Computed example of a mutant assay.
Amino acid sequence: MKAVAIRTFGPPEGLAVIDLPAPTPAAGQVLIETEAIGVGGVDALIRSGALASYGFEEGHILGSEVAGTVTAVGDGVAASWVGRRVWAFTGVGGGYVESAIAPVEEVVPLPANISPADAVTLGNSGVVAHFGLAHAHFVPGESVLVRGAAGSIGITTVQLAARGGADAVAVTTSSAERGDRLRELGATHVLDRSGDGGEDAPAGYDVVIDIIAGADMPAFFDKLNPNGRMVAVGIVGGPPPAGFGMRMFEAFRKSMSFATFSADTVPEPGRRAVRTEQFAAAGRGELHTVVHELLPLEQAVLAHQKMDTGEVFGRIVLTP
């Protein structure tokens, strides 16, 4: 089968299409003929070499979520899985392939009215958005700022905050066109990437969901209201500056909180329940996914080039 691996860390051109033997599911696993593969921000970070200290090596196969049809199962897995349309989490790798292996506990059946591309656009992003807001203790009537709202996590967070009764949902994005699209999805105020703009925007926010992190994170922490909560759900812009902790202590009397959130900390039954509900909501048209573009698996380099230039709104999906 064809797969995409990191030949050399660095720019997208370091990715290579390789041939691998077709895999066989082990006990507790299923084999999925992939129809859609999600391209995420963490894929770009791994490819760049920024996460090499976490054990990622050259030769690593990227991708963490796929959708397709189960074609075989390992020992201990019910044969009734064969032939079912599913979404699956493959781990922090192993997704950019024609045939993917996944543990059965990380496999979710898909309703008939959601496409494979929509499934991989929502599967991981929806869980992060849902539990990120929960981690921030968001309640109806509060104001929310979503920093980096043009990606699939941000797009889903905007919708969930609006559906959850937010008093205001502000977003940061790079263009007026993207801002208009985010308004259609539930945003009430559109700011530029620095957090400026929008004369009628709230002066402060009860909740900030930050997908970017990076050098400008302290400026967004400063936008919290007293008792406000900031949750970093991504680090696509790199870590915050070393002095970020001091910034928090300087605001000691405002009782503001900062936390990180990773879906890895949510027990599998909780993730499964949310994904099942969100897939159903998407099938009913109540939750919208945005697929930026479908590209063949062999064009993974192009997909990552588009990611690096910041032109993606929503998610790029690879198709074998």
Rank of each mutant, 00 (worst) to 15 (best):
T156I: 08
F89S: 11
I316T: 15
E177A: 07
R47C: 04
W81A: 04
G123Y: 10
R272L: 10
Q278I: 09
T121C: 13
G14N: 02
V97L: 05
L15D: 08
V266C: 03
A50C: 03
V42L: 08
G83Y: 14
V92S: 05
Y205I: 02
E268P: 12
H304I: 00
G270Q: 11
S194V: 05
K2L: 15
G234N: 07
P103N: 15
V107R: 01
G228M: 11
A282L: 11
V128P: 10
G164E: 09
S262G: 06
A162F: 01
P226T: 09
M230H: 05
R47D: 09
R183H: 10
F131V: 06
L185F: 09
M307I: 05
R85M: 13
M307W: 02
V42N: 05
A259C: 00
M248G: 09
Q29T: 06
S255G: 05
I235G: 03
H137I: 00
P218C: 02
V171R: 01
V317H: 02
L182Q: 06
T276E: 14
G154R: 01
R253L: 13
S262M: 12
A281L: 11
S175D: 04
D43L: 08
A50I: 08
V108M: 12
P111V: 12
G41Q: 08
I235N: 08
A281V: 04
F313T: 14
G165C: 13
A203D: 12
L133E: 09
G74D: 04
A112H: 14
L15P: 02
P202Y: 07
A102G: 07
A27E: 13
M230E: 09
T34H: 01
I114C: 12
A112G: 14
T156E: 13
A36Q: 14
T172H: 11
R271E: 07
P140Q: 15
A187S: 02
M1Y: 06
R183I: 13
R181N: 02
N227G: 11
L297W: 02
D180H: 00
P12W: 00
A79L: 08
I101M: 12
D167I: 00
V128N: 06
A176N: 14
A26Y: 06
M246E: 10
S152F: 04
V190I: 15
H130K: 07
R163C: 00
T260M: 09
T69S: 12
A134Y: 07
L31T: 14
L191S: 05
D75C: 10
V169F: 06
